[in-house]
């Protein structure tokens, strides 16, 4: 019954990469400032827009800031927004989706209506309006905005799953015993949704990192904070692409892509856990079956 999550390379690779970036976000800034002696905000006037060199391993920006230090500092900002956004989104989708599926009826319809409303809302213009209204948009606020506007898809999935689990006999049987709805949701229904929730969280993580970058690129960001998104935005504003300053925008872009890939790879593993049909193990079994069949038939075949 147990399925080895780390049994295939995909998940292991994803976990290693994601773990690296988490560590980078936590320890990186300390490492760059104390060990490498670099400061993400310091302007080195002697090296403006210089390509990678010994002093600046990833080169410097238009303003003479060290790109490596910025990438490391930016990891903190991006990962923070990613995790917080994913947590906010996942929590809201659980709070809305699970009761919607479990209760059905009027409660369910109301929650479902709310979900659909958020699904069809024109998110981007709304974020601009909201960001303009809120004025100072710190990273926390950005993360909350991303979470609040991004939960609806997950809630729909959870609603469907919760509905199917709630109608299964074992939930009915425990209800027959007199279990309260609260306990039925938490001990009988929710454990069956953990796989979905984990996969939603990872999806949310990718989404939030990308959304942060996208919003920063469009100008919705905290100008004092450093994230991969703000780096790319600064590069864009200074026409880094046209001027060939590749070392300015490639590292943050690559980091975003790597985090996305890592989370997606872990997600494949989680999906296989939740849905045995996707397991690569079954492909192995199919190969093995074919091999046994060939051996069994060999005497006749030759």
């Amino acid at each position: 019954m147990k399925y080895d999550l780390f049994g295939n390379g995909k998940v292991t690779f994803g976990v290693v990469v994601l773990g690296f970036f988490v560590l980078l976000a936590i320890l990186g800034p300390w490492f760059t400032s104390t060990v490498l002696g670099l400061d993400a905000r310091a302007n080195d006037i002697s090296a403006i827009s210089s390509p990678p060199s010994a002093a600046h391993p990833l080169g410097t920006t238009q303003f003479g800031q060290d790109v490596l230090a910025q990438v490391v500092e930016g990891a903190r900002g991006s990962m923070f927004v990613g995790f917080l956004g994913a947590i906010v989104g996942t929590v809201i989708s659980i709070l809305v989706g699970v009761p919607a599926g479990y209760f059905g009826g009027t409660t369910g319809n109301a929650l479902n209506f709310l979900t659909n409303l958020f699904l069809v809302m024109p998110v981007l213009p709304l974020i601009f309006v909201l960001a303009g209204y809120l004025q100072g948009t710190g990273l926390v606020m950005i993360a909350f905005i991303i979470g609040v506007f991004g939960w609806a898809g997950g809630a729909r999935t959870l609603r469907a799953q919760a509905m199917s689990v709630s109608n299964r006999d074992f939930v009915q049987a425990m209800r027959m015993l007199g279990e309260s709805n609260r306990r039925l949701i938490f001990t009988e229904v929710m454990p069956h949704l953990y796989g979905w929730i984990a996969s939603m969280f990872l999806g949310g993580l990718i989404g939030a990192v990308m959304a942060e970058a996208g919003l920063a690129f469009l100008g919705v960001s905290d100008s004092s904070a450093i994230s991969w998104g703000t780096m790319i935005q600064a590069a864009q504003q200074q026409s880094a692409v046209l001027r060939g300053l590749w070392w300015w925008f490639v590292p943050p872009g690559l980091c975003i892509a790597l985090v996305g890939t890592a989370a997606a790879l872990i997600n494949f593993g989680v999906d296989e856990l939740a849905n045995p049909k996707l397991r690569s193990g079954s492909r192995r079994v199919a190969k093995r079956t074919a091999a046994i069949r060939r051996t069994a038939l060999a005497p006749e075949g030759v």
């Binding site: 299964r168 074992f170 009915q172 049987a173």
Partner: peptide
């Protein structure tokens, strides 16, 4: 219930 496989939560 009719189905002894469905009326016990597989996780408990």
């Amino acid at each position: 219930f009719q189905d002894p496989f469905g009326s016990l939560n597989p996780l408990h």
